[in-house]
C-alpha cells in the first residue's frame, strides 16, 4: 500500500482544485481489512515488565482532560496537581503528558503547571461543534495562547468538510495555525461524524497539508469517539505523510479510552503500524479523563502485588 500511495501522491496539491482532486485521489480504505487488522492487533498479550513499561509510557501520553460546563477553577487546580503527581503514594510514577481544558480555565491551570514540563492544552475554535465564524474561532485561539496554553486542540468544520468545501476547512486550519504562534496545533477530525474511513483518511491528509502538528480523532462529545480502526487509518496517514514530505505528525485518539487494556492496544497498534518513532508523548497522546485512574490502579497492582481499588485514587 505504501508503494501505491507514494506513487499516487507524488504531486502535492497547490490549489483548491488540486486539493479536491488530490484528496479524492487518495487510495480508498479497505473497511473490512482495517477492522480485521485492528482487531487482530488488539489481541496481543502484554504482561509483567513489558506491561509495567507500557503503563508508564501510557501515563506519560495522557492528556488529562476536563471539558465540562461544570468545570470550576478548583477542579482545574486539583486536576493540574494530579497531572504533576498522579500517584501521591509513589514518587516514581511519571507525570502525564498534558492537561486539556477550556480556554477560560487556561490561566488557572497555567498557575499550577508553569515550569513543570507538563504541557497545557486548550480546546479552541468553538469546541466542540466548530460552528462559529472564523474571527470568533481565531479570537478563541489567541485567548487560549495568551493565557499560557502551549497546545491548541481545534475542531474542523465538519459541516464544510462533509459538504465538500475542503478549501474552507484548509484555510481555517491555516489561519488557526497562524494564530497559534509557537503553540502546537492539534486538529480534531471528529471521526464519529465523518461517516467513512475514506473521509477519515481525506481529513487526515487535509489537516496535515494545512499545517497540523497533531491529528486527533474526536471531541469526546459525540457518541462514537476514538476506535482502533480509525486510529489505524490515521496512523497510516501520518506514516505516508512523513514518507512523502519528511515531516512527522502526531496522533491523538480521544474519547472512550477508559482502561489500561484499551491503552495497551493502541500502543501495540503504533508499534506495528508506524514503529518506535511514534512511541513517545511527543508524537502520541491519549485524550482521556478516566483512563489515568485505571492506569494508576494497574500500576499499583504491579508494584504492590495486590489489586487496587478506585477508592484510593482521586476522581479529578
Amino acid at each position: 500500500m505504501t508503494a501505491t500511495a507514494t506513487s499516487r501522491l507524488s504531486a502535492l496539491p497547490d490549489s483548491a482544485v488540486n486539493l479536491r482532486a488530490f484528496l479524492h485521489g487518495l487510495p480508498g480504505v479497505d473497511k473490512v481489512g482495517v477492522e480485521a487488522r485492528a482487531a487482530a492487533l488488539g489481541t496481543r498479550s502484554v504482561k509483567t515488565t513489558a506491561k509495567a513499561r507500557a503503563i508508564d509510557l501510557a501515563i506519560r501520553m495522557v492528556d488529562l482532560t476536563t471539558l465540562e460546563g461544570a468545570d470550576t477553577p478548583g477542579k482545574v487546580r486539583a486536576l493540574s496537581a494530579k497531572a504533576l503527581r498522579p500517584d501521591p503514594a509513589d514518587p516514581t510514577c511519571p507525570t502525564v503528558g498534558a492537561i486539556c481544558v477550556y480556554p477560560a480555565m487556561v490561566p488557572v491551570a497555567y498557575e499550577v503547571l508553569k515550569g513543570s514540563g507538563v504541557h497545557l492544552a486548550s480546546v479552541a475554535t468553538a469546541f466542540p461543534s466548530g460552528q462559529a465564524p472564523l474571527d470568533v474561532k481565531l479570537a478563541d485561539t489567541r485567548d487560549a495562547v495568551a493565557g499560557g496554553a502551549d497546545e491548541i486542540d481545534m475542531v474542523i468544520s465538519r459541516g464544510a468538510f462533509l459538504a465538500g468545501d475542503y478549501a474552507k476547512v484548509f484555510d481555517e486550519i491555516v489561519a488557526v495555525k497562524e494564530a497559534c504562534g509557537s503553540a502546537h496545533l492539534k486538529v480534531i477530525l471528529e471521526t464519529g461524524e465523518l461517516a467513512t474511513y475514506d473521509n477519515v483518511r481525506r481529513a487526515s491528509w487535509l489537516a496535515m497539508l494545512a499545517g497540523a502538528d497533531f491529528i486527533k480523532t474526536s471531541t469526546g462529545k459525540v457518541p462514537v469517539a476514538a476506535t482502533l480502526p480509525v486510529t489505524l487509518v490515521m496512523l497510516e496517514a501520518v506514516r505516508d505523510f512523513r514518507a512523502q514530505t519528511g515531516r512527522q505528525i502526531g496522533v491523538k485518539p480521544a474519547g472512550g479510552i477508559r482502561t489500561t487494556k484499551d491503552a495497551i492496544k493502541y500502543l501495540v497498534l503504533i508499534n506495528e503500524t508506524v514503529g518506535d518513532d511514534w512511541l513517545s508523548p511527543d508524537w502520541f497522546r491519549f485524550g482521556a479523563s478516566s483512563l489515568l485512574n485505571d492506569l494508576l490502579m494497574q500500576r499499583t497492582k504491579l508494584t504492590t502485588g495486590h489489586y487496587a481499588g478506585p477508592d484510593y485514587f482521586t476522581l479529578d
Binding site: T300, H306, A308, G309, D311
Partner: peptide, 8 residues
C-alpha cells in the same frame, strides 16, 4: 486475592 483486594 480477595483478602488483599483494595476494593473489597
Amino acid at each position: 486475592w480477595l483478602a488483599s483486594h483494595d476494593d473489597v
